[in-house]
Amino acid sequence: MTPEPRGLPVRKARRYGERPGIAYLFLSPWVLGALLLTVGPMVASLYLSFTDYDLFTTPDWVGLDNYRRLFADDPRFLASVWVTIKYVLISTPLKLAAALAVALLLNRASRASGLYRSAFYAPSLLGASVAVALVWRVIFDNDGIVDRTLSAFGVDTGGWVSSPRYALLVIVGLAVWQFGAPMVIFLAGLKQIPKELYDAAAVDGAGWWRTFRSVTLPMLSPVIFFNLVLETIHAFQAFTPAFVVSSGRGGPSDSTLFYTLYLYQKGFVEFRMGYASAMAWLLVLVIAVITAVLFWTSRKWVFYAGEGGR
């Protein structure tokens, strides 16, 4: 017969279970931080979005007037929306494509694979820092190394940063250059694909492209979806590169007037905090809708092997 468990552990479990205050004590720093630093400011900004507030006077309730003026009386707002949409649609696919391409190359075993991974990931460690954006601006500015190199071949752009045609491409290039984070995630996903699938494809006579399209992409689709959601959200929130490259003005002819940069100008340059709060909540709503759409469409193209696929 199996001996009965001793009563001491049971009594200990009951004793600890009867003291939930200890758990709440350990949770209290996080709860207080979330309430004071996240939830509280969000509620305050939601209230301010319905007011006329300049940081120095009492907020004056104006209802939906801030939201109405965004679409009816502010052409620069619509310009910032268009610039941000172009940036998201260009930078996100290019960044993911570069990350996936490099991950496929690094997935092949070699003696220097660790060195290559570190080298390709290094730009992402720098993040969206002011120093990196300043260096990037000097490289692409008038008489920068890129401009001088193109001039040697007879191509005169007059400086990418000062050109309305190329200024946005400079910031896109900076975003694509920092593809290390999605690359590492892609590389981890590639390591999880069973080798037997590639062996079966080789037996069937599938070439590289057919194997990539029929094996790699379907098995990697959850990772692609994860990176797509994250990079889309990050692209909508981009601020530092646009601020530094354009010196906080939004570039020539508002060509780099990102949504977040225009929000900063309204809130911290013109001190129209109520108007800026309305812009912030509109951005939150747009990101939430786009994320929901991505999750809804994922049911048609994301393959989960544990669920038998779709």
Rank of each mutant, 00 (worst) to 15 (best):
R148L: 14
L230N: 08
R19I: 01
R117M: 06
V245L: 13
A128R: 04
L37M: 15
W82G: 14
S49W: 10
Y259A: 09
V138Q: 10
F239T: 09
F236R: 06
P75G: 09
L46F: 15
V223F: 02
F258M: 07
A44T: 15
L263Y: 10
R14G: 03
A103H: 02
P29M: 11
R15P: 00
D254T: 03
L228I: 03
L263I: 08
S118R: 08
R148H: 06
T51Q: 12
L169T: 05
W61C: 04
Y67S: 08
G189K: 03
L100G: 06
T211G: 14
E196Q: 11
F295H: 14
L36M: 15
V293N: 01
I145V: 11
I171D: 10
F226R: 07
V229W: 07
L134H: 00
V39F: 15
T92G: 09
D254V: 01
T57L: 07
T57I: 03
W296F: 07
V130M: 01
R11E: 03
V10S: 12
T297W: 01
A128Q: 11
L104N: 07
T57H: 12
R165D: 13
N66H: 11
K95D: 06
R11G: 01
E18F: 00
V146C: 02
S214P: 01
Y304N: 02
M1K: 09
S45C: 12
R299W: 04
L27I: 11
F303T: 02
P123T: 02
S49V: 09
P252F: 07
L187R: 08
P41I: 14
S277M: 05
F268I: 09
R15I: 00
N66A: 11
F153E: 03
G144E: 04
G250W: 09
V83R: 07
Y16K: 01
A238D: 14
A188R: 08
D73N: 13
P182S: 05
T297G: 01
G248K: 06
L285N: 05
S113Y: 00
R272L: 11
L282P: 07
L35Y: 13
M183F: 13
G251C: 02
L8V: 13
Y304G: 00
A292S: 05
A112Y: 13
Y304M: 01
L257Q: 03
D54T: 13
G40N: 13
R11V: 01
R310P: 03
W281P: 10
M279V: 05
F56Y: 15
M219D: 06
L126C: 04
T38L: 14
K191D: 13
R14Y: 06
R310N: 10
L104M: 15
A152C: 00
P252E: 03
L46A: 15
L94N: 05
A133T: 04
S113A: 08
Y264V: 10
G306Y: 05
N227Y: 06
L174V: 04
F71K: 01
V155D: 00
L106D: 04
R111H: 11
